[in-house]
Amino acid sequence: MVPLSYYLALSAILFCLGVAGFIFKQDIITVFISIELMLNGVNLAFVAFSHALRQIDGNIFVFFVMVVAAAEAAVGLAIIIAVMRNRNTLDVDQMTKLRD
C-alpha cells in the first residue's frame, strides 16, 4: 500500500522541476522539454486520483493530455524550426528583437 499523497508529492516534484527547467534553461528546446516534464507530472496526479476514486475518467484525461502534447509538439517544433531559420540560434536570451 502506498499513500496517495506519495504519488501526489512525486507529481508535484516533477511539476516543479519542470517549472524550474522552464525558468532556468536557456536552450529553447530544453525549455520545451521542461514543459513536457510538467505535463508528465500532471499526468501522474490524474492517474493517482483515478485510482483513488476508482474512476476511469482520470485515465481518459491522461490520454487526451498525451494527444494534446503530441499536437503541441508538432507545432512547437515547427515554430522552433522557423525561428532557427530566421535567427540561427536557439538561445532564449538572444530572443530580444521584441523588447522595450
Partner: peptide
Amino acid sequence: TEASLKYFLLGSFATAFFLYGIA
C-alpha cells in the same frame, strides 16, 4: 517568429498550470 515562439512557450507553460489545477 520570435513572437510566435514566446507566445507558444509561455502559452504551453500556462496550459500546464491550468492542467495541474484541473487535476
